[in-house]
Design a protein around this nucleic acid. Structure first.
Length: 846
RNA sequence: GGCGGUGUAUCCGAAUUGGCACAGGAGGGGGCCUUAAAAGCCUCUGGCCGCAAGGCCGUGUGGGUUCGAAUCCCACCACCGCUACCA
């Protein structure tokens, strides 16, 4: 209860005030400090699409609490922010608003920066990066050249994903599961185009292997990346192609298979419709018409239906045969629309008894299904286990069998136990390898990263096409290749429509040449921004290696799960290349990753198009930034999705006002120097103990990112303080203790509600320096130890009584007390067992 | 189809190593203060039985392991997410 009338908590007054004080004092500036341990806290930087939304508020508040908390714990904390500023929305907005993408982008950045500042986030703005600015993107071009030098850049013709909405190609990672563009949701089409690639597949194995050494990443994200990389172990097997006359030729077609042990069951051979051989094989033959029908149908529907999952399989016989290397049998070659050109070699050995897809295809086209791997308990096992030659050409099974079993009808391998990665697999690979017919092989699902985009608003690819010299890199000294400002994108122009940009001379031969007019995927910009923060204003080099060595790796990265594969995989790739270039000591950029949950409304993602957006500014205008920060943290644990609700917002505000009054009252009473009842008072001792319990709890919770429970703990301390004040009348209170509690509480609150804490610290408690420069309250474990302790007594697993014993009481004393506490439950029964759990309970078994 | 996640009060959620299930907040009831209200402060708030003491039940469902299970194991249900003809 308030004995004095204190100043009211007025967040809208104090928040802007302290923001400008901090700004002027340079409170958030940080430099390398060899005397302190470093900590790098990073939140995924935003695309400047408009104002910040609740998802940003949540993401950045979590990061800000961690950053401020660790600074108080004595770390040198790097906590930067910037903008992922290239990208298509700027072009679209520019066309719509008849402005320039740069103008639109920078206007949005200014707006967002103001909003972030209004939230009170502790960013060191001197380190900010804006990826569309020349002093940033020139280094992106430099990276491209270095990758090129290292053989990691390739320009090749390939079937690619074309988004008709964005009018550009996309990398595989940027096509969603249902065949939609990740950005605009258009259905992606396939086109054969010559494009630029970063050879991420060179690092496939390492990207997979190091996931095992990343305990700080959520299992979920690591699984998603491992699945995406998609390593399969198996063999490459060569099949000799027969000519139109049926006689073997010199030509071989290689397939990848994870089950070489099923080779004896291969009764047909499949090519993808896009396979380059298809046309050649059927040209001018009677089979051409049927085959081309399949090819054309596949082309037509590839983008849409192919992504719809399983559907009916179509195919046609080419009239040709290949020779099965294990038994010399001639196997018919078919074209089938379920074979993907993008995976493996685009050719497949079909084993209908062991592969469900092949099984369905065989049934549809009347092809034989000889069993070659049968489970032990199948009647066929006993019948065929000693039958090396093929006697049975069909099965009664409803579907293919791909589990463990024994090999049958499989020549010299008949009777061998087998299965995925089993003995039979190894045996067949060995046999093939000895004869030069195949080798053990690893295949990855991961494709090279297609980085060229046919868009204006991106980082120009620093390459020149010379008619005489071919592809020539732009010399390093000529960087950056500037993005011209006068491209009229409202008319849909790109760099390819701008001769002033592309007309140039060859750096090698001096002849007339043309600049590359594609720009780079924006994900190339976001793959290294965390490194540039380490030395953001360096005009001489991409970063100083000592500075990067000091700050890297990022200790805590925080962002949305939607980047589980995209940005997080690309960044890991970049980091490994930088390590190999000697620019970095580490091969992984982010030691710990927190994927924060989404902020939803009524179970749906908030979006402008759905019209269900809760604007942070509206909350700030009414309650202030501190209340919003505390509220969004309190609503749910950071990694869980959060359904926005206004219920409870008042509760947080009430709590902060309660803290406000307590600190004010404590300060006043301490100033008026009322006669304290020192130490011995029981209520005071309890409050003191509670203070230390909460310090310990909050410290621990931040380390676990349980920011909702750390706030709950501070609420409990607030309640305890009120309890004390209600229990002890004014005049009898320990004012020194009250002030100590107020001081600890304000310091603990500082990372969560930085403005209120600062106001209370300086203006109410009258301390000279910023609360954000104070040491975190020290947790004293001895302060929470009590002389006696309450324990529960269970009999046969049910709570039957309670005892209070000395904290250091010996086990037999506790047992005796426990038995004495539950006489009616053990009377006349034999005590069979007593389990004492220190400090918690005694379990009696009768 | 595959992989992963989640399920606790009226609602959001806590329970860190297997140890008193439900901390904290919201919502609701009651009280104090007030002429009254707001604000504030105090207090109660899972279900059933009982005057009470107390007992029984209770963490999506059903089993199991254990002195003891929200937590571990098995099966199933519901919802969510990712992925998908990957040879």
């Amino acid at each position: 209860m308030s004995d004095n009338v204190s100043a009211k908590y007025e967040p809208l007054q104090i928040e802007p005030k302290w923001q400008s004080v901090w700004e002027q004092a340079g409170l958030n500036k940080v430099d390398e400090d060899p005397a302190k341990p470093k900590y790098y806290v990073l939140e995924m930087f935003p695309y400047p699409s408009g104002d910040i939304h609740m998802g940003h508020v949540r993401n950045y508040t979590i990061g800000d609490v961690v950053a401020r908390h660790l600074a108080m714990r004595g770390y040198s904390v790097l906590h930067p922010m910037g903008w992922d500023a290239f990208g298509l929305p700027a072009e679209n907005a520019a066309i719509k608003g008849n402005t320039h993408p740069a103008t639109w982008t920078h206007a949005n950045i200014d707006k967002q920066k103001a909003s972030l500042a209004r939230m009170g986030f502790s960013y060191d703005w001197d380190r900010t990066v804006v990826t569309c600015d020349e002093d940033y993107y020139r280094w992106g071009q430099w990276i491209f050249l270095k990758f090129w030098e290292r053989g990691l850049v390739e320009r090749k013709m390939s079937p690619v994903n074309w988004c008709p909405g964005c009018k550009t190609v996309l990398a595989n990672e940027q096509v969603l599961g249902d065949g939609e563009c990740w950005r605009c949701k258009s259905i992606v089409e396939k086109r054969d185009l010559e494009q630029w690639y970063f050879k991420i597949t060179e690092y496939a194995q390492e990207l997979l292997d190091s996931l095992d050494e990343m305990p700080g990443w959520p299992e979920r994200v690591k699984t998603m990346q491992a699945n995406w990389i998609g390593r399969s172990e198996g063999a490459e097997v060569d099949f000799v192609l027969c000519g139109a006359d049926g006689e073997p030729t010199d030509e071989r077609i290689t397939v990848f298979t994870t089950r070489p042990d099923t080779l004896f069951g291969c009764t047909f051979f499949l090519l993808a419709p896009e396979h380059p051989l298809v046309h050649e094989l059927v040209h001018g033959t009677p089979y051409a018409a049927d085959v081309m029908t399949v090819v054309r149908a596949a082309e037509r529907e590839s983008a849409v239906e192919r992504s719809m999952g399983e559907r009916e399989k179509h195919g046609a016989f080419t009239g040709r045969y290949v020779i099965n290397p294990v038994n010399g049998e001639k196997v018919p070659v078919w074209v089938a629309d379920y074979v993907l050109m993008e995976y493996g070699t685009g050719a497949v050995m079909a084993v209908p008894c062991g592969d469900q897809r092949d099984f369905e295809f065989a049934r549809a086209y009347g092809l034989p299904i000889p069993p070659v791997v049968v489970p032990e308990d199948d009647p066929l096992a006993d019948k065929l286990r000693n039958t090396p030659e093929r006697v049975l050409d069909d099965v009664t099974w409803e579907c293919a069998y791909d589990g463990p079993g024994i090999m049958v009808q499989s020549g010299q391998f008949t009777g061998t136990p087998t299965g995925k990665g089993g003995e039979g697999v190894t045996a067949v690979i060995e046999w093939l390898a000895e004869r030069g017919l195949g080798t053990e092989a690893i295949n990855f699902r991961l494709r090279d990263w297609l980085i060229s985009r046919q868009r204006y608003w991106g980082n120009p690819i620093p390459a020149i096409h010379c008619p005489a010299c071919g592809l020539v890199p732009v010399p390093e000294a000529e960087l950056p290749v500037r993005l011209p400002q006068d491209v009229d994108i409202t008319k849909g122009e790109t760099l390819a429509d701008h001769p002033e940009f592309y007309e140039t001379t060859c750096p090698k031969c001096g002849g007339a040449a043309a600049r590359e007019t594609d720009t780079m995927d924006t994900f190339t910009c976001s793959s290294w921004y965390y490194l540039r923060y380490c030395d953001a204003r360096n005009a001489e080099e991409i970063w100083d290696t000592d500075k990067a060595a000091y700050w890297m790796p990022v200790d805590q990265y925080i962002g949305g799960i939607e980047h589980a594969i995209l940005h997080l995989l690309y960044s890991r790739f970049f980091t490994k290349v930088f390590r190999d270039m000697g620019l970095l000591a580490h091969g992984e950029p982010f030691t710990n990753l927190l994927t924060q949950g989404m902020v939803k409304l009524d179970g749906h993602t908030m979006s402008k198009s759905r019209g269900n957006v809760v604007a942070p500014e509206d909350i700030i205008a009414k309650y202030g930034a501190d209340t919003l920060r505390a509220f969004i943290l309190f609503m749910a644990p950071p990694d869980k999705d959060l359904d926005w609700s206004y219920e409870g917002l008042d509760g947080i505000y009430r709590w902060l006002a309660r803290v406000w009054r307590f600190v004010n009252d404590s300060a006043e009473e301490s100033a008026s120097g009322s006669d304290a009842v020192a130490g011995g008072d029981e209520a005071a001792a309890k409050l003191y103990r509670e203070m230390h319990r909460v310090i310990g709890k909050v410290t621990d919770d931040v380390a676990r990112f349980q920011l909702n429970t750390s706030i709950a703990a501070m609420m409990e301390l607030t309640n305890s303080a009120y309890e004390y004040r209600n229990a002890v009348p004014a005049g009898g209170r320990d004012v020194a203790l009250q002030r100590e509690v107020a001081s600890a509480l304000v310091r603990m609150l500082a990372p969560y509600v930085p403005h209120m804490a600062e106001e209370l610290w300086r203006e109410v408690l009258g301390e000279p320096d910023s609360v954000h420069l104070q040491a975190w309250p020290e947790f004293d474990p001895s302060a929470v130890v009590t002389e006696t302790i309450d324990m529960v007594v269970q009999v046969n697993g049910k709570v039957r009584g309670k005892i209070t014993v000395a904290t250091d009481a010996p086990q037999d004393e506790i047992t005796a007390a426990a038995l004495a506490a539950v006489p009616s439950w053990i009377e006349g029964k034999e005590v069979k067992k007593v389990v004492v759990v220190a400090g918690k309970l005694v379990s009696v078994v009768v």
